[in-house]
Design a binder for these strands. Structure first.
Lengths: 257, 257
DNA sequence: TGCGACTCCTTACAACGTAAAGTAACCTTG
DNA sequence: CAAGGTTACTTTACGTTGTAAGGAGTCGCA
C-alpha cells in the first residue's frame, strides 16, 4: 500500500519534521519515549517487515502498547513521514566535484540505489507531495549542487533532477521490491521466474512470435554473474546502462548551451 | 500500500491472465458473474476510490457479496494483477514510424502519462516482478518495436527501455498521486502547498540559505498556466524537459553506433 | 431420482488504525 | 504540604479489512 504523505495538521507535521518543539518544564510523569526513539524503532521494524508494519509492532519493540505512540505522533501517516525523512539522514550532504559533474552524479545515483535496498519501504511512500523534511531537502540539495555546475538554466535543471530521481527510484524498485516479494513468499527470484515462465510457455507456446521485438530485446545477453540472483543481475546492468544514456543526454544539453 | 504481484499459485494466476480456462459444460447453477465482469467492476471502483478499494465494494457494484468473487478469483492480489493487465489493453499496440523513432517514443510516453492519470492506482502496483500478462507484454512490445529501429544492440536497448519506463512512471506518480492525495483530503494542491510552506518558512526562516542550490533550481521559472493546478504545471513541464534530455541521450548512443 | 459439482450467502475470525476513558505519576499553585 | 491540573501510558472497544468455513440452493448427468 502506498502511504500518502502529509494529510494531517500541517503545523504539527512540519514541527515534528524539523523537531521544532520547545522542551519546556511540564507537569505529569517523565516521558519514557521520544519521537526519535519511536521513529528509529519504526524504521527497524519496517526494514524487517516492510511497509505493512503495524503500530502495535513498533510499540512492542519499545516495550509499550500501540496507543502509547499516539502521545508523541499524531498517527501512522505522520510517523511514516518522519521515518522517511529520518532515514534520508544516512545519505551524504555533498559530493566532490574534482572530476566534474558526471562522476559525482553517478556516485549520487549509486548511493541512492544502495540506500533504497537498505530501506525498501522508502519506495512505497508516495512521492506525490514532498515530505518537506530537512533531510529530504538535503538529498536533493546535494544533487542540485552537482548539477548546477553544468551551468544549465534552472528550467532545464528541474527536468534533469526529476529524471535522475525517477530513474533511480524506478530502477531501485525493480530490484528491492523483487527481493522483498521473494522474502515475503519465501521463494527466491529464480524459483519465481522458473515457475511463472514455465507455465506461461506451456499455455502460450508461440510467445516469441506474438512479441517478436521483446525477443530481440532479450538477445545479446551477457554471461550471468553467478554471485547475484537472477533479477538483480539484470537490474544492475540495466541500471548502469540506463544511467549512462541519461547522463549522455545531460552532456548533450551542456554541449549545446 | 503497494500490492505485490503474483504471490499465489503460479498456474492459476497465469491461466487467469491469459484467459486459458476451457469453457466446458459443467454442473451447478449458471455463473452469474465472470472474471471479466469482476475485473471491470474492480477497475471502476479503483478509478474512483484508489488502490485501497475493498472486495466488499467490488462485490456490491456487481450486486453480490465480497465472498462471491472468490469463486472466480483466488484473492485480492490476483485480482489486482488481472486489473493491471486488463487496463493496459487500452493502450495502442503499435506506433507509426514515419518520422523516425523519436516522435514515436514521445507519443508512447505521452500515452502512458495519460493512461496513468486515468488509472492512478496502476502506479501502486509493485513493478518488482512483471505481471506477465498479455497486455503488459504488448505495451512493452510497442516500445521495443520503436526502439529496435535505432539499430542499437539488445544490451543497450534493455537499459533504455527501463529508463524510459521508470521515467514515465515516476513523472506520472508525481502528478497523479498529487491529484489523488488532494482528492483524498479534499484539499487542492494550492491549499496544501500554501499551508505547508507557510508553516515551514515560519519555523525555518533561513531555508534559502540552508539549501542555496535548491533556490537556484527554483529560479528561471516560466509564467504559470492558469488552466492547470500548481503542481501539475510544474510536473508537465518537467516531464517534457526530462524526456527531452533522456531522448537526447538515446540519440547520442545512436550516433556513436 | 438422486448424486456430485457448482454458485453464492451467511457467519466468523484475526489483524489493523485509532477513539475513549481510566489510572498513576508528576509539577505547580494555594 | 495538600489539592488540583496535566501528562504518560494502559485497557477496552469499534469499525474496517481480507478471507476461511460451512450451508443453501441449482443444475448436469448417471
Amino acid at each position: 500500500m502506498v502511504v500518502y504523505a502529509g494529510q494531517g495538521d500541517p503545523r504539527r507535521s512540519i514541527e515534528l519534521l524539523w523537531r521544532a518543539s520547545v522542551a519546556e518544564k511540564r507537569p505529569g510523569p517523565k516521558p519514557g519515549l521520544s519521537v526519535d526513539a519511536i521513529v528509529d524503532a519504526a524504521i527497524e521494524v519496517a526494514d524487517e517487515q516492510g511497509m505493512a508494519f503495524s503500530m502495535r509492532a513498533v510499540g512492542e519493540r519499545l516495550g509499550r502498547t500501540a496507543m502509547a505512540l499516539y502521545t508523541y505522533v499524531p498517527g501512522k501517516n505522520e510517523l511514516v513521514d518522519l521515518m522517511y525523512d529520518r532515514a534520508m539522514a544516512e545519505l551524504p550532504a555533498s559530493y566532490p566535484l574534482d572530476d566534474g559533474w558526471r562522476p559525482a552524479v553517478t556516485r549520487w545515483a549509486h548511493d541512492m540505489w544502495e540506500f533504497y535496498s537498505r530501506h525498501p519501504w522508502m519506495l512505497q511512500v508516495s512521492q506525490a507531495r514532498p515530505v518537506l523534511g530537512p533531510h529530504e531537502f538535503a538529498v536533493t540539495e546535494a544533487l542540485a549542487a552537482i548539477l548546477v555546475t553544468t551551468g544549465l538554466p534552472g528550467r532545464e535543471l528541474r527536468g534533469i533532477v526529476g529524471a535522475v530521481n525517477y530513474f533511480v527510484r524506478g530502477a531501485a524498485q525493480t530490484v528491492s521490491e523483487a527481493r522483498a516479494a521473494g522474502g515475503a513468499t519465501g521463494e527466491g527470484d529464480e524459483e519465481w521466474w522458473y515457475a511463472r515462465s514455465a507455465v506461461l510457455l506451456e499455455i502460450e507456446p508461440d510467445l516469441e512470435k506474438k512479441f517478436p521485438m521483446l525477443h530481440v530485446l532479450e538477445s545479446d545477453r551477457e554471461p550471468v554473474d553467478p554471485e547475484l540472483p537472477y533479477l538483480e543481475n539484470d537490474a544492475v546492468k540495466n541500471f548502469r546502462s540506463g544511467l549512462k544514456v541519461l547522463l549522455d543526454g545531460v552532456e548533450a544539453a551542456v554541449a549545446k548551451s
